[in-house]
Write a protein that binds this DNA or RNA. Structure first.
Length: 268
DNA sequence: ATGCCTGCGGTTCGCAGA
């Protein structure tokens, strides 16, 4: 079962790109971020025509997340608990019925998340980012107690390590590379989550984002900020992880590319 | 030091992104 995360940077501007990629890669579940659309304007019919169920959590103009799945949703939960005043659409969870490699049935939980950017450091956006990450850690710790396969997939807006950037020195004053941001991501690992890309490769230079500006793609001036964090049960069933760089070279690309984890589950 | 480029909203420039 292939589970992907992709910051699409505007689903309506990217619909041709998305349809091409879905047809091509045939992922089972796709977590999307920055759909930049309200639910009513989400281009669901084109996607449903490819055999996907579609659940969205949109917002006017900015942010917004969605989950596409070849399996039907058993449950959908929107909004990260812990702050009823937070109106930004950055979190949704889908629950599915699957079987593991031995045929045992289990629930599979998949989260699509879009963490705050947090720049500039020194503005109120940075504490919002850290506060959001603290709420997310608390929610994740709670979910871990279920001892179920759980995939936290999304745009974390955090560069974990220097080897996750082509030029780490230019990021030292950026919210994406602050010790507090990196520490909050590392807390998920200390709780027991596994970075699906990193557990499969020690190589530097695995990137998921290249800025539109200054020829970043052509210079391979990228960063790795889109992550799939796996609960122990999910990590035990990880077969492989890949980054689909091809789409960054397509016409009218998103500045992010899909990251895909292949887990040893099948639809129940 | 700043813009570079792109999507969106709501009108053609401002904001946000990373």
């Amino acid at each position: 079962m292939k589970i992907a995360t992709w910051n699409i940077n505007g689903v309506r501007a990217r619909i041709d790109n998305l349809i091409q990629w879905l047809s091509d890669a045939s992922p089972d579940i796709v977590c999307m971020q920055e759909i930049k659309s309200v639910d009513e304007n989400f281009p669901r019919f084109e996607i449903e025509a490819l055999g996907y169920h579609v659940e969205t959590h949109g917002q006017k103009g900015f942010n917004g997340v969605a989950i596409l799945s070849k399996m039907r949703f058993d449950e959908v939960n929107r909004r990260l608990p812990g702050d009823d005043g937070d109106e930004q659409a950055r979190f949704m969870e889908g629950v599915f019925s699957v079987r593991d490699a031995k045929g045992r049935p289990t629930a599979l939980r998949v989260v699509s998340l879009y963490l705050p950017n947090g720049n500039p450091v020194g503005s109120d956006k940075f504490p919002y980012k850290l506060g959001w990450m603290a709420r997310f850690e608390a929610w994740s710790a709670d979910r871990l107690m279920l001892e179920e396969p759980l995939v936290l997939a999304g745009d974390y807006n955090v560069i974990p390590q220097p080897e996750d950037a082509k030029n780490p020195e230019v990021w030292v004053n950026d919210a994406l590379f602050q010790p507090e941001s990196r520490g909050a991501l590392r807390k998920l690992e200390s709780l027991g989550f596994t970075d699906a890309v990193r557990v499969c490769s020690d190589s530097p230079g695995i990137y998921t984002f290249w800025d539109y500006q200054a020829g970043a793609w052509q210079k391979n001036n990228g960063i790795r900020i889109d992550h799939l964090m796996l609960s122990p049960e999910a990590a035990d069933n990880l077969r492989a992880t890949s980054v689909d760089k091809r789409v960054r070279a397509w016409e009218k690309p998103s500045d992010h590319v899909p990251v895909i984890a292949d887990l040893a589950y099948e639809a129940a």
